Computed example of a mutant assay.
Amino acid sequence: MHPTEQQQRVVGQLVLVFRESLLLNGSRDVDYRIDEHGAVEVRWTSGPFASEVAAELAAYGAIGLLHVDAVTTTASTTGRVHLLISDVPVVLHAFEPIGKSAVSRRTFQTRPSEKWYWPSPLEEEGVARDQVLWTLELSGDLVATVIRIPYDRPNDINWSEGGQLVAVSEDDRPKGLSPARRAEVSGAWEICSILLRYAPKGMSDDDADTWMAEELGNSFFLRMSVAVIFRDRCIMRDWSGFRVEATMMDTATTIPWSIVPSALRASTFRFKRSRNVPPTTLHVREFGGRHSMFTVSTAVTWHAPSSFFSKTSTYHEVNRPPAVGEGFVD
C-alpha cells in the first residue's frame, strides 16, 4: 500500500516538530512507519514516555503549528498513545521508556573532565572550513546553518553542501601556533575562498573598500572573496564584482558576524538569481554556537571584477556588472 499525500505530510510535520522540540533526542532506534491500517507509527527505544510526547504534540497543536484532532490513551500511558493529526491516525509507541527527566540526566550528565566544547578554529588558528547546510524551519524559512570545523581535520571530508575555506588577514592571525601547525595551515592563507579582516578601531567604509580592492587585485594570491567584519555589520567583495553590505535591523543583538560571509557566498550558489548575488534577506544560524537563528539584510552594488575572474571561463554575460544607467536587477 502506497502512502497517501496526507500521510506523508503528517510524517514530515512530525519529523520537523521532533527536531525543533528535541523531545526524542537521547532516544534510540527512532523510526517512522505506516502500518497496514494506514496509521503513522512513531517508535523509539529508551526515551520519553509516549504520554509525554503526546502532550508535547498537543502543545504544538494549541499554537497552530500542528493540527491535533484528538489524543486517546488505549493502553499504558507510558508506552503507547493514539492520536489523530490532520485526520490521519498516529500511534506513538515507546519501547522501554525512561521518561523525559531521565533522558535529560543521561544526556547532560558528564564529569567536569569530560566536558567537550565545539571548536573555534578561526579564533585559535586563523583558518577554518565553513560548511553551509540549508534547513527548512517550521515557519517555512530557509536557513543557512554554518558548521565551522578545523582545517583538514580530518584530511578528507565529503559534505552534501559546498564548503568555504576561510582565513583571517595577516594582522589578525593568532600568535600562539606551534611551528608544525603553522606550516600545515600556512597554505590556506594563500588559497582561501574568503579572506577576513576584523575592522580595527577607526576603520571607515572607505578604508575597508580600499583594503578589499587591494586584496582582490593581488596578483600573487587567488582571492575569490574578501570581507571586513565590523561590530554591527560586515562588508564583502566578490571577485565577480559585486559588493554586499550585510546589516541587522536589531542593532542591540550580538551575532557571530564572522560566519556571515560564508553564508552570503553559499547563497550565491544556492539561489538561482540574476548575476548570482545574495538574496536581499538571509536567515543564518551558527551550528554548535550559543546563538539562535538571526536574519541579515543585504545591499548589493557592482564594481569591476578581479583580473583573475575576468580570465576564467566563468566570466559570462550574466556575471558582468551592470552598465552605466542600467541599474541593478534583483
Rank of each mutant, 00 (worst) to 15 (best):
S219T: 06
R231C: 14
F294P: 11
E190Q: 14
S310K: 13
R265N: 05
E123A: 03
A213Q: 09
Q8F: 10
I85D: 04
W302D: 07
P150K: 05
S160N: 06
E184D: 14
A199Q: 02
E190P: 04
G64R: 04
S219P: 07
L57K: 05
V244H: 01
M248I: 14
G126Q: 08
T145G: 07
A50M: 05
L282S: 07
F308W: 15
I63A: 01
R197T: 15
S297W: 09
Y117T: 05
G12A: 12
E184N: 06
A304I: 07
P89D: 06
R80E: 15
E36L: 05
E20W: 07
V260E: 01
D330K: 00
A128T: 13
A75Y: 15
P154F: 04
S186T: 05
S178M: 01
E161G: 03
V329K: 02
I63Q: 02
S310R: 14
D69M: 07
M293S: 15
H67I: 08
R231D: 15
M1T: 09
V226G: 10
L92H: 02
G176F: 06
V244P: 03
F108G: 06
N218A: 05
V296Q: 02
L65N: 02
S104V: 15
R153K: 04
V185C: 00
L84D: 08
W302P: 06
P97D: 09
E114M: 08
P279N: 04
T74P: 06
G79F: 11
V260G: 01
A75H: 14
G64D: 13
L22E: 13
E41F: 06
G99R: 13
